[in-house]
Amino acid sequence: MIWIFDSIILIFLVVTAIISLQVKDLLSAAMIFGVYSFLMCLLWAGMAAVDVAFTEAAVGAGVSAVFLIATVLRTSRRSSD
């Protein structure tokens, strides 16, 4: 049963990674990267690495997303690719 759970999250991981790199709007890219990080956090909680999971939730998803959004707001929001 945990195998199905892991497989669904891993498929969504690849999908969100591709979408966050393909979308033209950089603010959307930052938010979808936050979704990617939270999915990674769920996966690690499922793999019994809870310390890594909540570090990723706080530092990876939270602080990284804030840094990216701050940079997008201070520079330009459109991307050429």
Binding site: L26, A30, F33, L68, S79, D81
Partner: peptide, 8 residues
């Protein structure tokens, strides 16, 4: 080409 995309 975009720097933010590279960092992501």
């Amino acid at each position: 080409n975009n720097m933010i995309k590279k960092l992501i």
